[in-house]
Write a protein that binds this DNA or RNA. Structure first.
Length: 478
RNA sequence: GGCGGCGUACCCAAGUGGUAAGGGAGCAGUCUGCAAAACUGCGAUGCAGCGGUUCAAAUCCGCUCGCCGCCUCCA
């Protein structure tokens, strides 16, 4: 049984989707006005893992992630750059898609845009007006928060204590300061759509309500996003949707924690935004993904060169061990895994993921088994008796394969992993081979001084030599 | 001010009332001509602090201290 922490209840609950085997999930995507940062990566990777795991557990999942392509910030940027909002949005949608692809984030089943959902949005607003939850003022449409009794249930806010207007200018035309815009009349230099209330554009929250209703129906199983979206975005979405449909909007609300930099939230004003593209210049996509999955998705995590370096080192440990399994025990690794042994190795992974998607424990479990594999291979190498490896290694291989397919790490072919590191070296492969030859000649004549000199020279250029029983191999220093 | 959360070894980090996973760094050893990789050993008598409940608490309750987030656009 999968357990999920539900923000609405404030605790973990058994995960039971409305339809037996089917999960409808919606995750808030980016507002496309700038390059995506590492926080977007976290949300995307976290929910990608959840999506993949649900499918792994046999659910048919319909996964929707939107692009917000109508927004104040997009309009502002467009006006600054003399471009159209559509040009800005298209540019950053493309950039976001590239980033997601680089990080190995699987494509959601649907990726709707606000601009393509306008009819539904307008109908949705009209429904709210018809049902008395919204009112029109000068071409704007506002949601009347006090009409919705449960307002505040998700963010645990008391409506009386929300000191409205404390930090934001109050619009005197609103009946209540807490009311929020469903539709905004267009001003000059703004994109607009025809509506029953005049030319205008949708407010921020209504788009999600309309998009997920169109694609997933009145009740979602999972609705996710960053913690900061709980209020007001998700609170308002819930108010809109439940007012319109009269049905529960979301069964499980899930929110991921932030990525901080030097224990501070990334923000434009602090100037500490780290884009995904910049992160990828210094670290591999797999390391970034492993870093994100190494703590629980709800905890805040701190990005630093140290932890990313740790992640790179961990990957090296993984692939080095996997290589050893394949190279030293090829005939054993290829054997069909024993069902019981495989189940025994997979169970802790499944238990961890069942428990609110505890990827950190899942990763830990893999390293624990890695350690055991190395120990058994050491022993087998020493005693010449490989019987202990026979049920174990093939089953472990299955764990790598299945956990790797869910987590999106540990799943590269060995050659790809080791080849990818070659771009960091400052010497040609031919030259390396020549030096290794020279060194081995020196070693044969016991000229240790020259042999060590060559080792040092190569290490300077980022190459580590390993003298193995079957010859000398080289690797890229991490 | 209101609401929510966090504080586990040098760093990262899991932890479901039953006696502290894992990774990195460090030290010592095995192996090696020397290394590397791997393995072995060492490393929190204690989980911010103080109380309480319990046969038993990092885990539950209370208080205190420190940090963070949301309440405004925000993953």
């Amino acid at each position: 049984m999968i357990r999920v922490y539900n923000t609405l209840k404030g605790e973990k609950e058994d995960f039971i989707p409305q339809k037996n085997n089917e999960v409808r999930m919606y995750v808030c995507g980016p507002t496309v006005y700038d390059l995506s940062h590492i926080g977007h990566a976290r949300s995307a990777v976290a929910f990608d893992g959840i999506y993949r795991y649900l499918k792994y557990r046999g659910y048919k999942v319909i996964y929707v992630r939107n692009y917000t392509d109508v927004d104040d910030k997009i309009i502002k940027k467009a006006n600054e750059q003399g471009a159209s909002p559509k040009e800005i949005a298209d540019r950053y949608i493309k950039a976001f898609d590239e980033d997601m692809d680089a990080l190995g984030v699987s494509l959601p089943d649907f990726r709707p845009k606000v601009t393509e959902t306008m009819d539904e949005i307008i109908r949705f607003v009209q429904t709210l007006i018809d049902k008395g939850y919204a009112y029109v003022v000068d071409g704007d449409v506002y949601y009347s928060v006090r009409k919705f009794e449960k307002y505040g249930a998700l963010s645990k806010k008391n409506i009386e204590e929300l000191e409205a207007g404390a930090r934001v200018e109050v619009d005197e035309r609103k009946k209540d300061p807490l009311d929020f815009a469903l539709w905004k009349a267009s001003k000059e230099n703004e994109p607009w759509w025809e509506s029953p209330w005049g030319k205008g554009r949708p407010g921020w929250h209504i788009e999600c309500s309309a998009m997920n209703r169109r694609l997933l129906g009145d009740t979602l199983d999972i609705h996710g996003g960053g913690k900061d979206l709980i209020f007001p975005h998700h609170e308002n979405e819930m108010a809109q949707s439940e007012a319109a449909t009269g049905k529960p909007f979301v069964r499980y609300w899930m929110h991921n924690g932030f990525v901080n930099i030097n224990q501070e939230k990334m923000s434009k004003s602090l100037g500490n935004i780290l884009t995904i593209k910049d992160a990828l210049k210094n670290y591999s996509a797999e390391a970034i993904r492993l870093f994100l999955l190494s703590s629980h998705y709800r905890s805040p995590i701190d990005y630093s060169p140290d932890v990313l370096h740790d992640a790179e080192t961990s990957l090296d440990r993984f692939y080095t061990t996997k290589e050893r399994m394949e190279k030293e025990w090829p005939e054993i690794v290829k054997k069909k895994a024993d069902k019981n042994e495989k189940g025994r190795l997979l169970q802790p992974f499944i238990d961890a993921m069942d428990d609110d998607f505890n990827t950190a424990f899942a990763v830990g479990h893999i390293f624990q088994e890695l350690h055991k594999a190395n120990r058994l291979m050491d022993e087998a190498g020493e005693t010449g008796n490989s019987s202990a490896l026979i049920p174990y290694l093939p089953a472990l291989y299955e764990l790598f394969k299945e956990a790797g397919s869910v987590l999106g790490v540990f799943n590269k072919p060995l050659e790809d992993y080791f080849d990818a590191k070659k771009k960091y070296i400052k010497i040609s492969e031919d030259e390396i081979k020549r030096l290794i030859n020279e060194r081995n000649n020196a070693r044969r004549s016991k000229n240790w001084a020259r042999a060590d000199e060559i080792r040092a020279e190569l290490e300077d250029k980022g190459i580590i030599l390993e003298d193995r029983s079957d010859g000398t191999i080289w690797k890229v220093k991490r």
